[in-house]
């Protein structure tokens, strides 16, 4: 049986992509294909004790597609700034939507999204969720629980984004 977290992440990704980016995905992809991801956006959920780091690794063509759809542009007119900004907003919305689905006690805060280019090399942990579009794997979502900075380094202020 699928975990609640995994199911919530699938639902969050689907809702955000369908509502804001007019893209429909499924989650039956091949993770070896997703290893060709070229960019990554990420966001953290955090509280005083714990952190969940969510990472979206994607092919550039997927990032370009959702950027074009969000901004109403032709894919060839999507600039690198558009692509970065859209991938960050994608992480932001999925992170917020995922939080709404799992955080029934309102214990988590949402950080500020980040973006980086991967140069075609990714280190997939294997626990991620591969998503596909038009029958092709387009990327992978991975999320990991960790102790917060505050817990790891007692006495130091947490440096999570958004604080």
């Amino acid at each position: 049986m699928e975990s609640h977290e995994r199911s919530a992440m699938k639902d969050a990704i689907s809702e955000v992509l369908e509502t804001m980016f007019f893209v429909f995905v499924d989650f039956n992809g091949d993770s070896s294909e997703a290893q060709l991801a070229e960019c990554e956006s990420s966001i953290s959920l955090y509280n005083s004790r714990e952190r969940v780091d969510i990472s979206f690794k994607a092919r550039e063509e997927f990032a370009r597609l959702i950027s074009a759809n969000l901004l109403g542009l032709d894919e060839s007119d999507v600039g690198s700034d558009d692509l970065e900004d859209t991938m960050k907003e994608f992480a932001n919305m999925v992170g917020g939507n995922y939080k709404a689905r799992i955080d029934v006690r309102n214990q988590w805060d949402l950080g500020i999204p980040q973006f980086r280019l991967l140069g075609g090399q990714t280190d997939l942990g294997g626990s991620g969720l591969v998503f596909s579009c038009y029958g092709r794997s387009m990327g992978e979502v991975d999320w990991r629980h960790a102790l917060s900075e505050e817990e790891t380094h007692p006495g130091q202020r947490a440096v999570n984004a958004g604080e």
């Binding site: 932001n92 919305m93 992170g95 917020g96 939507n97 939080k99 709404a100 955080d103 309102n106 805060d109 949402l110």
Partner: peptide, 9 residues
């Protein structure tokens, strides 16, 4: 217009 879902917030 926000991703915030915390009802208290």
């Amino acid at each position: 217009i926000t991703t915030e879902s915390n009802e208290d917030r």
